[in-house]
């Protein structure tokens, strides 16, 4: 078996034995189903909360199924991303800091195989979690609000997946770049959230940006995004992902000396 296969098996075992393969999807599914359930039962929740003036009546318009799915994505854009950071911030930095990487680095290790095994496992687990979360959400949306066209759902989730892949690649690269997993988390979080803020403030001046992929994903549910803008954004996301993978491999090798001996 080549080194990539050996290392991927190690990553798989880590995910299984640390229960990451269970808790990561479980968290996304939980957040996925909480949103439609909360929105459906919102009047009852407010009523049971009390402290309402006598005779007060709130009229809640029933949201469209697509709007609920977009709300789920909104949850993933904040809490979901933080969970992914927490799950993968130590992928490289944590191994170096604990010294577990030392016994790998003293061998004729292929750093592309090392980094890519982590990338494949993180992306697989991350995407599986996001898709299971969206499917869980879609089920409750169908139950409470009506159905979403399967084609629209697939285009929505696939577009969002491109963003998640890029995001996870940035987290892993930060983990390879920095000596401490907490620092890697802070840098990845700061980088992505600062870019999101920048895009929301100045994003009107450009239309092709990987940061707009969540917005374009949303557009699939209300017709379709501008094809040119969407495809350029997707191409940029793929190119940036490849760039960060290359950087992550290089940084894993360059920073190998930081491992605890």
């Amino acid at each position: 078996m080549n080194q990539f296969g050996v290392l991927l098996k190690k990553e798989w075992r880590e995910h299984v034995r640390n229960y990451k393969i269970l808790w990561l999807p479980a968290v996304f599914v939980l957040f996925g189903i909480i949103e439609p359930v909360t929105q459906y039962f919102l009047p009852q929740i407010i009523e049971s909360a009390g402290n309402l003036p006598e005779g007060a009546v709130f009229e809640f318009p029933t949201p469209e199924p697509e709007q609920v799915l977009v709300s789920v994505m909104g949850q993933y854009q904040f809490i979901g991303l933080i969970i992914l950071i927490l799950a993968y911030m130590g992928a490289v930095a944590g191994e170096r800091r604990s010294g577990t990487a030392t016994l790998l680095y003293v061998r004729p290790l292929s750093y592309p195989a090392y980094f890519l095994s982590k990338w494949v496992m993180a992306v697989s687990a991350g995407l599986a979690s996001v898709w299971l979360g969206f499917l869980g959400a879609a089920y409750y949306i169908w139950l409470f609000f009506g159905d979403i066209a399967a084609g629209d759902f697939l285009q929505f989730a696939a577009s969002y997946s491109l963003w998640i892949i890029l995001f996870l690649t940035i987290v892993l690269t930060a983990s390879a770049a920095l000596p401490h997993q907490g620092l890697a988390a802070a840098v990845a979080m700061a980088l992505v959230f600062a870019a999101q803020i920048l895009d929301s403030l100045l994003g009107v001046y450009w239309t092709a940006s990987p940061l707009k992929l969540p917005a374009y994903a949303q557009s699939w549910l209300a017709g379709a995004p501008d094809a040119g803008d969407f495809w350029w954004s997707s191409v940029l996301a793929v190119l940036l992902t490849l760039l960060f993978i290359g950087l992550g491999i290089w940084l894993s090798k360059r920073n190998a000396a930081q491992t605890k001996v």
């Binding site: 880590e14 034995r17 640390n18 010294g99 577990t100 016994l103 001996v261």
Partner: peptide
């Protein structure tokens, strides 16, 4: 190394 560290789940 002096204090070898292993993946505890392997």
């Amino acid at each position: 190394p002096q204090y070898p560290q292993f993946f505890p789940w392997l």
